[in-house]
Design a protein around this nucleic acid. Sequence first.
DNA 1: ATTCATTGATTGCTACGGGCAATCAAGTTC
DNA 2: GAACTTGATTGCCCGTAGCAATCAATGAAT
Lengths: 192, 192
Amino acid sequence: MSVSPAALEAAQLIDRLERLARAGEQVGDFNPAQWEALRYLSRANRFSRTPAALADYLVSTRGTVSRTLASLEEKGYVTRTASRRDGRSVEFTLSAAGERAMARDPLLALARDIEEAAGPALPDLLDGLRRTLRCAIARNRGRAFGACYTCRHFRAGIRPGSRTPHHCALLDEPLSEADSRAICAEQEPAVT
Amino acid sequence: MSVSPAALEAAQLIDRLERLARAGEQVGDFNPAQWEALRYLSRANRFSRTPAALADYLVSTRGTVSRTLASLEEKGYVTRTASRRDGRSVEFTLSAAGERAMARDPLLALARDIEEAAGPALPDLLDGLRRTLRCAIARNRGRAFGACYTCRHFRAGIRPGSRTPHHCALLDEPLSEADSRAICAEQEPAVT
DNA sequence: ATTCATTGATTGCTACGGGCAATCAAGTTC
DNA sequence: GAACTTGATTGCCCGTAGCAATCAATGAAT
């Protein structure tokens, strides 16, 4: 059960970096949970912008997420539409104000720090973090929320020349280039 | 103001890793803030275990931290002693129960994931994170809370053979080996 | 087709944590 | 000694999170 001092220090550093980033988040109209929701909505594909998916992503509860989204809606940063494929479900999208808010995301400050600090080692750092997240998700039995194109249900280039050249074999839906790079609640990593 | 996609992804990964770690923290007697406090107290040297220092470390307020520590004291995980060097100040220490609780720290799960995922690349990953934290602290104008022996006030091996071979030139206090590796609220990185 | 279980979403309730400001005590400066 | 700073605590208020109950829609089973 023991762990090396180096790994423990790395975990502490991640914890601390996140806290510093979070300290900047109180500014403006948003609290940390609301920033997380905005970030998620800005990256999730159209099948994944529901309260349930967001709750899974945040490892939170639907009730809590429902209130977070209601608050954002009231302030005009997201818009709500009923789902066409499931009468129970609703979908949220960033409004223009929401898109604008993303440019002020406090996480950008952390990203700048990473860029400055890592320099040419950035790809290696990124790789280490990616692998770690994969482990953490596997341990938690959580959904991966990876990019669409890395999914086992992704079929590339089924309709060459079309605006939606790719396809999702799970949902049987056409996918654009942008879709394929968005994160998806249904994503299951392709076996490598 | 713009930032590379790779750096942004790295920031998002850090954010997400921290959230997954935090999701495990609700278990047991502690909430996230209380875990942070316990971690800090387990690592801070004897000059730094005060509410004010902890508030700085957490980028929080003294009022909030005061309540967090009061709660931990009530539950018996920390003990309070009046400071001898400053009549206004109080010092907190982990109780035996607090020490035991650290063995259940949910951050250990993240550390294990890092160890498993990074493997031989761990030193590089650690280095990247360390450098990033340095940048983030510089940007925030926060205190560094680095290890004592990395401080410009640290004087190594002043008393060879003694149990407190080192010395702090700022506080004029003798330091043991263990002291020198603890984090300190007064730490200022030595110029490199 | 009817029933049963599951899933999606919301809301009342309660508790707790966080920030702010005021207060008190103890150092520090001049 | 007066004025200022620093350390800590507490009252107040708000927002958020969790829990559980509720309602609606879907899917599965017989």
